[in-house]
Design a protein around this nucleic acid. Sequence first.
DNA 1: TTGAGATTGAGACTGATTCTCAATTTCGAT
DNA 2: ATCGAAATTGAGAATCAGTCTCAATCTCAA
Lengths: 172, 172
Amino acid sequence: MPRSTVPPESKRTRAAHPSPELAPASAARERLAAWIAEKGLKATRQRDVIVDTFFSQTGHLSVDDLLNKVQARDANIGAATVYRTMKILTDAGLASARHFFDGQTRYEAALDRHHHDHLICTRCHAIVEFENERIEALQDAVARQHGFVVTRHKLELYGLCRACQTLQNPPR
Amino acid sequence: MPRSTVPPESKRTRAAHPSPELAPASAARERLAAWIAEKGLKATRQRDVIVDTFFSQTGHLSVDDLLNKVQARDANIGAATVYRTMKILTDAGLASARHFFDGQTRYEAALDRHHHDHLICTRCHAIVEFENERIEALQDAVARQHGFVVTRHKLELYGLCRACQTLQNPPR
DNA sequence: TTGAGATTGAGACTGATTCTCAATTTCGAT
DNA sequence: ATCGAAATTGAGAATCAGTCTCAATCTCAA
């Protein structure tokens, strides 16, 4: 069952030939340190654990998933701290929040990534990312026609991925 | 402050020259009656009030707004009934649920309406609808490239509407 | 008119997230 | 290294939209 555009092992592969997509977790940690200094925040052990855990994952991670992984490393870290830390990462531009099929916020690493949109399988919940500048251009044109200046957008395509098209179980 | 593509008075205007956009509320009531019969549901006074209230509005109505207007007509109708009724309208294809900037579900009348997407002003929350078949076609093409069969999509453009571009108050 | 079954309103409940607050930790100034 | 103001923490309470439960009520075909 496909779970993400980026297969797990690619994280290791990336070190070999520099990827334009995903900066290494260490870069994220540096950027966070700069942000923390700039904003008068403080570096804490908990934040380190959460940030390391987050950047060692790929794909779109729910807070709950992240919390589980974080607590596997340090059982004393609470949910509130994970929520708070992900908000800081988002403000710092290192993560971005997404809302797909369910009510949960999912985060993806955002450092040095292009804007992209998502294809979501309604059956297995695989999430595939894509970029299409012609769509973007048309969006801008439409907005201009209506006098809008667009600052962000959300484009999500829901359907069945290749694997799920042949299966008959009802989509969730 | 613009609130919707469809200005309030247009509802009356539509009767003169038949609009392809919005069927009259009476047609919706008939369709609902058919749906209720088909599904073995029952017609109730509460549902009539809610459906009449809903279809006498235009634009994108939150459950809370709708509840207020419903209770102005009958203070005894509870929130749960409004939630339940809007779900029925949605199942019957007479309303469709949308999720924009905040966590609230908003409903719009769906009877005989084309699919369309939305431009949303982040400052005044005006919602403008648009259709663009070239964007739709490109979406399908992208999905096909990734082996997906798309069943629905969500495209929302967020930014500042013409009126709000000249104002300096911070966007909400 | 009757009764099975649908519907209702109120309030309890849920799940995600935020808030509160006392205890703890950080870090620049000493 | 120590101090202390200010930030952070975890736990649990609070919030918020929405759903569920259940006893009382209503609908409608027979």
